[in-house]
């Protein structure tokens, strides 16, 4: 483009600066001052803000609830990765490899929960788990398994596992579509070659499909891990609020309770720093273990 340097920089400034200022004020500044707040004892009013060094971090290490919240988060990560990947992979293969006429219908239906609000999903599933009216207990009664019926979300042992199902229910569609994208890029000739070599469908899946969609599988797993560590607290907040007796608190919901319910803002920020560090570390470690080279035939 023919224009003077000055004009170019003016235009650049017009394009970049207003956006960057808002981004800096509403995203970068809060993140960094979150780090800063974690060194203060602070109940919200400016007079009561006291620098206490690493005291919040010492409190964090000694807080008996913290290890549980971390465990709960990783429990959700592991169960969601396994549940979503197995089902999404199964559905993706079924909808691409076996010629099913109504495949687009399944795709549209399975994806829909991905764009539902967590509030709607959470409330819907709270009702499905409802001890007296809920679908789960009614279903168990219908099958003659009354003994298994329980107040799912009110039971300290079962509340956390009960949160996995809604998350899988809501998540599958997106990852199924990502895997379908990978599978439909695989050239048919690989399958023909495998067939000539006498490989059955099961062998074809293990030897052709799976290695060739490894990039999509890797991205899906990373994406599930990141979104769970950064956002699992939303469904927890809607469905159990961290209860019963802290049995479902994850790091984020505990942060919310400490900061915005009990007004320990400094300690809340410390929990936030922990979430940030753990989620970045997890992603790094995962990327290291999954850096299997892309296979090309």
């Amino acid at each position: 483009m023919v224009q003077s340097k000055k004009q170019k920089y003016l235009f650049l400034a017009f394009c970049l600066i207003p956006t960057f200022i808002l981004f800096a004020v509403f995203t970068l500044y809060p993140l960094f001052s979150g780090l800063y707040y974690s060194f203060f004892d602070w109940s919200g009013s400016s007079q009561n803000k006291e620098f206490i060094g690493f005291a919040n971090y010492i409190k964090l290490v000694k807080d008996a609830i913290i290890p549980n919240t971390i465990m709960h988060d990783y429990f959700l990560v592991v169960t969601k990765v396994i549940g979503i990947m197995i089902l999404a992979l199964f559905f993706a293969v079924a909808l691409t490899q076996l010629k099913i006429k109504e495949a687009p219908f399944y795709r549209i239906v399975f994806f829909f929960p991905n764009i539902m609000s967590v509030v709607v999903i959470g409330i819907l599933w709270t009702f499905i788990y409802n001890p007296s009216l809920g679908l789960v207990n009614s279903g168990l009664e219908f099958l003659g398994l009354e003994s298994l019926a329980k107040p799912w979300l009110g039971d300290e042992t079962w509340a956390l596992p009960s949160l996995v199902l809604p998350s899988i229910w809501a998540g599958i569609g997106l990852f199924m579509l990502m895997l379908i994208g990978g599978i439909s890029n695989i050239s048919k000739s690989y399958y023909e070659a495998a067939e000539i070599d006498g490989a059955n469908e099961w062998q074809q899946f293990w030897k052709v499909t799976l290695p060739l969609i490894w990039p999509q599988i890797k991205i899906s797993i990373l994406y599930i891990v990141i979104t769970t560590l950064n956002g699992s607290f939303i469904i927890v907040q809607v469905m159990t609020g961290g209860g019963p007796n802290n049995a479902t608190h994850v790091m984020g919901s505990y942060l919310y309770q400490q900061a915005f319910v009990q007004y320990n803002f400094g300690y809340g920020a410390t929990i936030g720093v922990m979430i940030l560090i753990l989620s970045l570390l997890t992603v790094l470690v995962l990327q290291f273990f999954m850096r299997r080279d892309k296979i090309e035939y």
Binding site: F26, P30, L31, Y37, F233, L255, F265
Partner: peptide, 20 residues
């Protein structure tokens, strides 16, 4: 910088954002 913000958990920022 913009892209990496997609991966950062924003919960930490919500406390200062509240006061801002």
């Amino acid at each position: 910088l913009y892209i990496s913000a997609m991966m950062i958990p924003m919960v930490l920022g919500w406390i200062p954002l509240f006061f801002l």
